[in-house]
Simulated scan of single mutants.
Amino acid sequence: MTQEEVIHCGGCGVKLQLEDPHALGYIPAQALEKEPVICQRCFRIKNYNEASSITLNQDDFLKLLGHVGHKEALVINIVDIFDFEGSLISGLARFVGGNPIILVVNKIDLLPKVTNWNRIVNWVRKQAKEQGLKVVEVVLCSAKKNMGFDRVLQAVDEHRSGKDVYVVGATNVGKSTLINRLISDYSDLDSELTTSQYPGTTLDMVEIPLDDGHFIIDTPGIVYKHRLTELVSKKDLGKLMPGKALKPMVYQLNEGQTLFFGSLARFDFVRGERQSFTIYSSGAVPIHRTKLEKADELYANHKGTLLTPPVVKDLEELPPLVKQTIHISKGKKLDVLISGLGWIKINSEAGAELAVHVPKGVKIVQRDSLI
């Protein structure tokens, strides 16, 4: 395939390319000799029930999503309970029109086993509503533990009414696992993948045919640069994302004390009565306690060495830390979420003045306590 030749995938219609295996439209050179000529993504779906993780930035994704509002469809938005606000698609309701939305909340296996699941569902509904997202159902699940997927399928049956199903989500939320499960339950993979409704664009979706003539539409994952997980190396990504249930870590702090999360973030208890803070983050990210008056010096002298991850080489790829001041009023029980890293639960009702330092652009959210 020369630069002059333009060939489109016989499955999804995207323009094919030979250069980047991780980008949309990639096809190995030897596959050009086969019939039909389809991209690697379609090949994996068709032959292995495997949806690959092609990604788009938010602006390009929202352009693509604008098509959904002009047709009748069911939208499944899958989010990560570990990074709920960071993985939620802001503005989704504006783009899907009046189409019903099922909010599938993945990774619930990370929450403590004593969690009240009804409370979590109510919390999710409240948070989604505050974000302007009206959902017909909230389903809690775990792709890793295969929990809750039967309920996802039941919800699809109840709300689809013969419509196409669009599956949307940010990167690393488990969207591919959900797509694969839907494929195995609903799709006849002996059928050829059909040409996308939007052939020839760089914003293509993959349509997976259903037995009733409609489709599951696999949309590219959205890259949100406000998530710390999008900024770190692959090696450190594995440390940030917990692999098992979180073990809350409680720190009794006096004012003027600081917690470092490796070199990735810093939490200062600037002012307030002695109180406890509960940390919900991956155990692979070590927490280092020090005095606030020594925090700047400690970071300057030991970032990337004593304070890891990341190591010095990878730290150079991250934006510099910026400070955000947070005032917690008396009587408020809140979480402070650092998108992609976890959250700190403020346990005291006495109020506090805090400061959080994160790489520039990373989202920090104050919210009602999840747990």
Results as ranks from 00 to 15, higher is better:
residue 201 T to M: 02
residue 61 F to K: 02
residue 11 G to H: 02
residue 200 G to K: 03
residue 354 L to G: 02
residue 322 V to C: 06
residue 242 P to I: 00
residue 120 I to H: 08
residue 207 E to V: 13
residue 14 V to L: 10
residue 145 K to W: 10
residue 41 R to A: 11
residue 25 G to A: 03
residue 207 E to P: 14
residue 309 P to S: 00
residue 179 I to E: 03
residue 237 L to Y: 12
residue 7 I to Y: 11
residue 105 V to H: 00
residue 214 H to D: 09
residue 257 Q to C: 06
residue 321 L to K: 02
residue 38 I to Q: 04
residue 9 C to S: 05
residue 307 L to S: 02
residue 292 L to G: 11
residue 174 G to Q: 00
residue 149 F to H: 10
residue 187 S to G: 08
residue 132 G to P: 06
residue 25 G to R: 04
residue 275 Q to T: 06
residue 56 L to T: 02
residue 285 V to E: 09
residue 132 G to W: 01
residue 245 A to P: 10
residue 197 Q to M: 15
residue 49 N to A: 11
residue 100 P to D: 01
residue 216 I to M: 05
residue 142 S to V: 00
residue 48 Y to L: 10
residue 264 L to I: 03
residue 332 K to A: 13
residue 225 K to L: 12
residue 23 A to L: 10
residue 72 E to Y: 09
residue 135 V to G: 01
residue 130 E to D: 12
residue 211 D to S: 15
residue 112 P to A: 03
residue 195 T to L: 15
residue 27 I to E: 04
residue 277 F to W: 01
residue 272 G to H: 01
residue 180 N to L: 02
residue 186 Y to W: 09
residue 173 V to W: 06
residue 136 V to R: 09
residue 122 N to A: 14
residue 51 A to H: 08
residue 176 S to D: 02
residue 131 Q to Y: 14
residue 315 L to K: 07
residue 59 D to Y: 11
residue 174 G to D: 00
residue 300 A to F: 13
residue 139 V to Q: 02
residue 275 Q to I: 09
residue 261 F to V: 05
residue 190 D to N: 15
residue 344 I to N: 05
residue 221 G to K: 04
residue 167 V to D: 04
residue 157 D to R: 10
residue 230 E to S: 11
residue 187 S to R: 07
residue 270 V to C: 11
residue 63 K to Y: 11
residue 153 L to H: 12
residue 60 D to A: 10
residue 231 L to K: 08
residue 120 I to C: 05
residue 365 V to L: 11
residue 234 K to L: 15
residue 288 H to P: 12
residue 225 K to M: 14
residue 48 Y to A: 11
residue 50 E to M: 14
residue 320 P to F: 09
residue 276 S to H: 11
